[in-house]
Design a protein around this nucleic acid. Structure first.
Lengths: 144, 144
DNA sequence: ATAATATTAATAATCATTATCAAAAAATTC
DNA sequence: GAATTTTTTGATAATGATTATTAATATTAT
């Protein structure tokens, strides 16, 4: 188990039950992927067949609120969760319209943008950016 | 009725029933606002008391598919619709976390970003950017 | 007008998520 | 360590936004 994660769990005195551990393991096994709650449930049941869906939702919610996971709404009105690598470092997404794969975009692409808005009197606390298009593999394939 | 809109309707040979007209009027009366389907239904019923919610959903969907409306998913997993002022000119949003008001951000803030991604082999066809924070009015008020 | 096509309103169905609640597990108190 | 309180769980019901169904109504073409 990752040290930082462990630290966060303690800091929130969060009891690590076997259900919560199963969910965390699923997220760690899928580092870099963006899983829906349903997908997490499927995977978690391979480790713990009786885990209930309410528990999975509750756990994902809790982990997201401690910034251990990112929770993002993608097309189709479904939330997806991914392991947060580095605390406060938000990043953004490119969704391939063909294969559906989700790639990451580093934060610093957005530098300067928030400043412009703050010059207009807004106070920005968060933002969310998604690109839709074709990834390098799909781009040149015939069946876009 | 706006000329451009009328042209688009014709171009898609879209029959302007009284229900559809009511929905369009609501959107035009609320230019600049971002309405949920439910809100459109409420307003539309003031003009046409028997209009059904399925009709409102269908109509909003149709108008969005002709680019007469923008359809955007905001927090809470709800779509909101707004009148599209200018055809292909996408814009983005700042959502005030206090009053919920939605402000617009002009496109050109993002210039250059897509190019960087295209240099990496992606082909970008669309994007979506939302900022969350406090608007100038709410920023200095005591009860953030 | 008559028949074919579109559109509608009401309502049921869907799907992701949340709430409820009694049972099980864990922690705390005596 | 047994008794009691607190937390967590799983099953299931409820919710809320959206979509599908369907029979009735309106519109258009013949």
């Amino acid at each position: 188990m990752d040290k930082k994660i462990n630290a966060k769990l303690k800091e929130n005195n969060y009891k690590l039950t076997e259900q919560r551990e199963a969910v965390l393991e699923v997220m760690m096994d899928n580092r870099g992927k963006h899983l829906s709650a349903e997908e997490v449930l499927q995977e978690a049941r391979r480790k713990l067949p009786n885990i209930g869906m309410a528990t999975v939702y509750r756990t994902l919610e809790k982990l997201a609120s401690m910034n251990i996971l990112y929770k993002t709404m993608f097309e189709g009105g479904k939330f997806r969760y991914e392991l947060s690598d580095d605390e406060s470092h938000r990043h953004h997404h490119i969704v391939c319209l063909k294969c559906g794969k989700i790639y990451e975009v580093e934060e610093d692409l957005l530098n300067g943008l928030e400043k412009k808005l703050e010059n207009r009197g807004f106070e920005i606390v968060d933002h969310e950016l998604k690109f839709y298009g074709y990834c390098p593999e799909c781009r040149n394939s015939s069946t876009k």
